[in-house]
Design a protein around this nucleic acid. Structure first.
Ligand SMILES: [Mg+2]
Length: 320
DNA sequence: GCGACAG
DNA sequence: ATCTTGTCGC
């Protein structure tokens, strides 16, 4: 079953609505932790993204409504009781005891009765569907390539695609609004959605897309490259600078990367691609490409562009 | 206190 | 990813 961009974007809008509802429900005189709000949203791992999200809602409004909301940002603390510097005074005025930057008696003050929908769980369900979509005849070669990267400035994003493989090299750039924070394991919803918009707008149909992130080398087998490839029905490969999950030996120039006892990708010394560099980069199949195909096609792309393909897109995206 | 989780 | 001076290594 195919997903569509509008359905996904709708869920991202829901994310902001639910964060707002959750934040507004914390009563005066109480505090809530970022972790508990994240858990109510479906994943405690999103806790680190929430201070920024709440602040954005208050200052600028969510990216959909763009109407600033007076969320009680000051009632949110870290799970160890730590309160943001600028929130301490407001909290004290509400009768909360503040000692050395922390909530006096956290267990008695903390409120966690959120009744919001678990949007992040819904996002994970989409990831699982994309991961299950992994079959189809896999490609073993490609003639035209698109490498992509995204840079950020506040809530603006610059998406840059580099098309190559048929002689010339073409750059495509699109500037848009960021719709979702960075949460480890959910990169597709931040960058993939913007990249899909860019490819729609310019009607790009390369044989394969090379993305700055992982493919099946992901907790749910559904990284940025996998989900985007599945959405667009374009074969894709993940090219990451570090691991999110999994591990590998460090003896040969090219090593297999394993996750839960199964090979999910490759670690390739950068020196294989470029003159310098001793670090590994991580290649994994996205969608419509197998393990062997991902490595073969990636090395071909690197050879044609004469360097690391995603790095090429990275430099492009750095120029606003 | 330390380690850690793509971008 | 971004914020940023000087510093290290090829
Ligand atoms: Mg990037």
């Amino acid at each position: 079953m195919r997903q569509d961009l509008e359905q996904i974007v709708k869920l991202l809008e829901t994310f902001w609505m639910e964060v707002k509802r959750g934040a507004m429900s914390v009563p005066r005189g109480a505090v809530a932790t970022y972790g508990d709000l994240a858990e109510a949203l479906g994943d405690r791992g999103a806790a680190r993204a929430l201070p920024g999200v709440l602040e954005e809602i208050k200052r600028l409004g969510d990216p959909f409504s763009r109407v600033p909301e007076n969320v009680p940002l000051h009632r949110f603390v870290r799970s160890d009781g730590w309160i943001r510097e600028e929130c301490r005074e407001a909290l004290m005025r509400e009768g909360v005891e503040v000692r050395e930057g922390r909530v006096g008696d956290l267990p008695s003050r903390v409120w966690k009765d959120f009744s919001i929908s678990a949007v992040l769980t819904a996002l994970r369900e989409l990831q699982k569907k994309a991961a299950a979509d992994m079959h189809t005849p896999q490609v073993h070669d490609a003639e035209s390539f698109l490498s992509v990267d995204v840079s950020y400035a506040g809530r603006r994003a610059l998406i840059c695609g580099v098309l190559f493989g048929r002689g010339d090299v073409e750059e495509v750039k699109v500037e848009t609004e960021v719709l979702f924070p960075y949460v480890p394991g959910y990169l597709f919803f931040r960058e993939g959605v913007l990249i899909a918009q860019m490819m729609d707008e310019h009607q790009l149909k390369p044989d394969v897309i090379l993305l700055d992130g992982h493919g099946v080398l992901h907790p749910r087998g559904s990284g940025l490259a996998t989900h985007l490839g599945s959405l667009l029905r374009v074969p894709s490969i993940g090219v990451a600078k570090s691991l999110l999950v999994g591990g590998h030996r460090k003896e040969k120039e090219i090593e297999a990367v394993f996750l839960a006892g199964e090979q999910r990708g490759w670690a390739v010394k950068k020196s294989v691609i470029k003159k310098r560099g001793r670090r590994y980069i991580y290649i994994s199949p996205g969608w419509g490409v197998g393990l062997e195909g991902s490595l073969k096609i990636y090395l071909k792309a690197a050879d044609i562009i004469g360097g690391e393909p995603v790095e090429r897109a990275h430099r492009c995206a750095a120029r606003w």
